[in-house]
Design a protein around this nucleic acid. Structure first.
Lengths: 134, 134
DNA sequence: CTGACTGCAAACGTTTTGCACGGTA
DNA sequence: TACCGTGCAAAACGTTTGCAGTCAG
């Protein structure tokens, strides 16, 4: 488990117990919805408010500490910000997995066809995960 | 302008004037938010209800006549269903543009690293469009 | 003619806001 | 201590639902 106290402060966020637990939940689960995060934090802080979850999610996104992943036909999940990567999402069980894919050939193709200046890539591949194939 | 009466019926959707106008709006604009669609249809049907927009968007999605495109940090847009393609989204002006990119090398990479069975690709490239670069 | 669609109003779920209290730095 | 964060309650927002009247097939 990381020391999220320091990491939070490095992002100009006060290290409250609630925020540290949000960071731990994201670190443990990788990807989590608002609802799951709320359920998870209620175990540790029985009187925590959903408003606190939302306020922290928003301020942590502003600080680029976390990121939202929008998924077709499903609720958004949140993850700790890390190096650029893509996502595999299982349509059956909903599991979200990180995957690093080299998109340079795709970006070349874009620059060949348009003058659009790409800054970020968002690739979500949906289908059936290995576990659900059985 | 296409004859959307027939196309709607081919999708088992009754061809009401409201639905035909939704199809025309999507055909003309390419990508449109719920709000813009509502504003657009109010010009033709001054007493149209937002509920009608939502009901039709949902039934048209169920019929695979249209599709939702989820965009980072922005509202979803809707488009007529067509062959698979990716999207360029300008962070400045919000414009959404279709682009066909060959993703086969990316999919190969996925099958080399996992046994995930990919069924759909959702690629959204964000950045600055040619017009906003000037 | 019949079932489906529309428009209105109300309900619903999600997210945001204001405020008093409490905790971090 | 000063400011920021928390929790509660209420408000705001987007979306869905139920119903009565209307229309497409």
């Amino acid at each position: 488990m990381n020391n999220y106290t320091e990491i939070l402060r490095a992002h100009n966020l006060k290290a409250t117990p609630q925020r540290i637990e949000i960071a731990n939940a994201l670190h443990t689960d990788g990807h989590i919805t608002i609802d799951n995060l709320y359920d998870r934090l209620k175990q540790k802080f029985n009187s925590i408010s959903l408003a606190t979850i939302y306020k922290n999610i928003n301020i942590m996104m502003d600080a680029s500490f976390i990121q939202e992943v929008k998924i077709p036909h499903a609720k958004s999940v949140y993850e700790l910000t890390k190096e650029a990567h893509s996502h595999l999402v299982c349509d059956k069980c909903g599991a979200v997995e990180d995957i690093t894919i080299n998109l340079s050939s795709c970006l070349e193709e874009v620059s060949q066809h348009t003058r659009f200046n790409v800054q970020k890539t968002n690739l979500v591949l949906t289908g059936i995960c290995q576990h659900c194939q059985q």
